[in-house]
């Protein structure tokens, strides 16, 4: 019998030190039955990719308020790809101007969530992404 649970890495890249939003999302995912690895603030894309590998996560969530998303998000996706984790969905939450959304999507960011997002939408998004990957993921 497998005891598999959805594992999510929540990281806060960039230099701003406000992690309230990231913590709220981390708790919501835990309350939805997921195992959330929270790595804290000021993470470099390299640190995030390394933690994602060691923790063998199914999803990576980035929280960015600093405006550096255009530099940071694609870099995380790229590093994950380089280490053979290109199938791991990356989502970003925070203040993302509309005009940046197409470029982020093109760079491989799967989900983009603005400041007012209901955490349940993020839970549902993650479940849907993983269900797309493998049919039996619903039982995880």
């Amino acid at each position: 019998m497998s005891k598999r649970r959805i594992r999510v890495l929540i990281a806060k890249p960039g230099l701003d030190g406000h992690d309230r939003g990231a913590k709220v999302v981390a708790r919501a995912l835990r309350d939805a039955g997921m195992e959330v690895i929270y790595t804290g603030i000021r993470q470099t894309p390299e640190m995030i990719a390394e933690a994602a590998l060691q923790e063998d996560v199914d999803v990576v969530g980035l929280s960015i308020l600093s405006g550096a998303h255009m530099a940071l998000c694609p870099r995380v996706v790229e590093l994950l790809r380089q280490q053979g984790m290109g199938d791991v969905p990356v989502l970003v939450g925070g203040i993302i101007p509309d005009e940046d959304v197409p470029a982020l999507r093109a760079a491989g960011i799967r989900g983009i969530f603005g400041p007012g997002t209901n955490t349940q939408d993020i839970v549902a998004f993650i479940r849907r992404e993983l269900a797309l990957q493998e049919p039996e993921a619903g039982e995880r």
Binding site: R27, R30, D31, G33, E35, Y38, T39, E50, A51
Partner: peptide, 20 residues
Amino acid sequence: SPFSGGALLGDRIRMRDLAG
């Protein structure tokens, strides 16, 4: 968490010196 079966794993926060 005994309620949801989920967990918040936060020990890595204090281990950032070991990255890389």
